[in-house]
């Protein structure tokens, strides 16, 4: 299965959430590949704490796979990460592998040349032979990376693969509107997909939304101390929900809602249960939200046509 992670704006929490979601899938027993298609600012290496890919690798990253026709490195996080969480993954019975295909340090966006969509399809096919799940972290907005994968997934050799889209956005009026524009706008995903041979209806049916860093009024009781403040937040949350519903981004299309977590606010990383129960530096609700989001990826009832 291919999961394309996208967002209209940068800094939404797409990569942090995507990496944690990938880690949960591996824990659940799947072989997972994480592809850093954010060619301009590859951050997955930093989130997985892989020193040699901190800002992308020196050579043979995904950027050079397309622009220089080199092979793409596959870094098994159990071997290449400094994070105990990821190094311990193989010791957990039944867990799958989590492999990073990093970006390049001196990457940058590039325009798509004629051979790239086929090369992209070839990469996805190869990974599908080996991995149960591929998470493709795309750069923000209507980037070349988005065009490239829309073009690749329209090719006949990828028709048998399951492709799904997750649109990440923060829980504010502006971010909801922006995410809506990214999908439904004049220059949005659906229109762009249609021009490349996708059926817009089907494409829309494969899109779901993830709300990131949402202040959770139950978890953050300490930070919401005054009754008036609580009442206002609840009312506003309700307003945002109504807005999302109207824009076809409501509950039925909600793949996950990740609570605001002070630890993640300061440190972009993969968290696990020991950060919750042992060190008590992350919130249980956050780990649970990643777990739920990971489970949703293969919940067929959830992805059925609406």
């Amino acid at each position: 299965m291919l999961i394309f992670a996208t967002s209209d704006k940068g800094g939404t929490g797409r990569s942090v959430t995507g990496c944690n979601m990938a880690y949960r899938r591996a824990l659940q027993g799947e072989a997972v590949a994480y592809l850093d298609f954010d060619f301009g600012s590859p951050t997955a290496g930093a989130i997985f704490d892989v020193p040699e890919a901190e800002r992308g690798v020196d050579a043979s990253g995904l950027h050079s796979y397309f622009t220089r026709h080199t092979e793409s490195q596959q870094l098994d996080t159990a071997l290449h990460s400094d994070s105990d969480t990821l190094r311990d993954l193989p010791r957990i019975s039944g867990a799958g592998r989590l492999v990073l295909l990093p970006g390049d340090k001196d990457g940058g966006e590039f325009s798509i040349s004629a051979d790239m969509p086929a090369r992209c399809a070839q990469l996805f096919l190869r990974l599908d032979r080996e991995f149960d799940l591929c998470v493709v972290d795309l750069s923000a907005g209507r980037s070349y990376a988005v065009d490239l994968v829309l073009e690749a997934t329209a090719r006949p050799e990828l028709a048998a693969l399951t492709s799904r889209w997750l649109v990440f956005h923060r829980w504010t009026k502006q971010h909801i509107l922006a995410a809506h524009g990214l999908v439904f706008g004049e220059r949005g995903l659906l229109k762009a997909g249609e021009r490349r041979g996708h059926d817009p209806q089907r494409l829309n049916n494969s899109v779901r939304y993830v709300r990131t860093a949402v202040v959770d009024l139950c978890v953050d009781q300490e930070s919401v101390t005054r009754p008036a403040q609580g009442a206002w937040l609840r009312a506003y949350d309700q307003k945002l929900r109504e807005q999302a519903d109207k824009l076809r981004m409501g509950r039925a299309r909600l793949a996950g809602q990740i609570p605001f977590d002070p630890m993640l606010q300061w440190s972009e990383q993969v968290i696990d249960d020991s950060d919750v129960s042992g060190l008590k530096i992350a919130n249980q609700a956050t780990v649970q939200a990643f777990e739920d989001l990971a489970a949703k990826l293969s919940d067929e009832r959830f992805w059925e046509g609406l």
Partner: peptide
Amino acid sequence: IGEVQQSNRLDHTTALRTGT
């Protein structure tokens, strides 16, 4: 390998997930 696996003679369904 890449060229053969991309052939339109195949249905591109992975029968068993294994490495190369």
